[in-house]
């Protein structure tokens, strides 16, 4: 009998994740690592501060001044990550089911598409979409403009689609064959078996790696700055060039890194906790 897939052993994090009554892991506020980074950030700011002369405003004041703009840019990053994840998951799910289809041509085609987009670098796909997708499409009688960030989001959705496809295929194939046999013996059709028995069991297995994929996608969104999307990374560059002060470089980049860290670290912890909880097989 095939054993279910087991996830890599969850790394023992220094502080255990508290689980609330609803069974949802409580999001940790701070964490030893976040504190260490905050300390590092403060120290670098202090050093930079010591280097400024009396005339220009302090580092912290400058960073606070630009925070609203940075927040706007970061919001675009998050929006792109949500959209790309949604699109990628939808298509990837279909593609994954195609990979386990009984029709050989469909299987081969789905597998080829999955492997192609899994093996392509994300930045190259982004360039491809930005440069080769039209900047406007004609739907019916109206012309819809495709803004840069939309094309970039689509470019990000493609590797997500391929990864979700592999996730789905792996999860379905990890369900013991006895489940298929039992369903078949009860006269379930293949479609019903998938819908009622196999896929519900797959959802649990797929969730931690799927969340992991979201984290990877989120930290990949700054790539869109290279192809001209005005998100947090671009804005940071703009801010730094407009201020023109070298002592701002380290704090501003660390600040931007902190934004992402504060967003992604709780997701990583929640993922690890879910992995532990679901690994009861």
């Amino acid at each position: 009998m095939k054993t279910p897939a087991s996830f890599p052993a969850a790394r023992a994090a220094p502080s255990a994740l508290r689980v609330t009554l609803a069974g949802v892991p409580a999001l940790p506020i701070g964490g030893r690592h976040g504190i260490m980074l905050a300390v590092f950030l403060a120290m670098s700011m202090a050093v930079a501060q010591a280097q400024t002369g009396p005339a220009p405003p302090s580092i912290i004041a400058t960073m606070l001044k630009w925070t609203p703009l940075l927040a706007q840019g970061f919001a675009l990053n998050i929006a792109m990550s949500f959209l790309a994840m949604a699109i990628g998951t939808a298509f990837g799910f279909a593609l994954g089911l195609g990979q386990i289809s009984l029709l050989a041509p469909l299987r081969a085609g789905a597998r080829a598409i999955t492997q192609f987009f899994r093996n392509s670098p994300w930045l190259v796909l982004l360039f491809y979409c930005m440069l080769l997708l039209p900047f406007e499409v004609r739907i019916g009688n109206s012309i819809v403009a495709l803004p840069g960030w939309a094309k970039a989001t689509f470019g990000l959705a493609l590797p997500v689609m391929a990864n979700v496809s592999e996730l789905v295929r792996g999860a379905v194939q990890s369900i013991p064959s006895g489940q298929w046999e039992a369903a078949e013996s009860l006269a379930f059709t293949r479609l019903k078996t998938l819908r009622m028995i196999i896929l519900p069991q797959c959802i649990k297995r797929m969730t931690p790696p799927w969340m992991n994929l979201y984290a990877i996608l989120t930290v990949a969104t700054p790539l869109t700055s290279v192809v001209g999307v005005s998100e947090a990374m671009t804005l940071t560059g703009d801010i730094l060039s407009s201020e023109g002060r070298t002592e701002l470089l380290v704090p501003m980049y660390l600040y931007l890194l902190m934004w992402f860290f504060v967003y992604c670290y709780p997701i990583a912890r929640a993922t690890a906790a879910l992995e532990r909880r679901f690994a009861v097989y």
């Binding site: 470089l249 380290v250 980049y253």
Partner: peptide, 28 residues
């Protein structure tokens, strides 16, 4: 703890921003 901090920092921040940090910020 330091090793864990390094790992968590690298995994939860964008590689592109890390690259810019090294090249532009530290490089300066």
């Amino acid at each position: 703890a330091t090793t864990q901090a390094y790992i968590q920092f690298i995994r939860n921040t964008p590689p592109l921003v890390q690259l810019y940090f090294f090249y532009f910020a530290l490089g300066a």
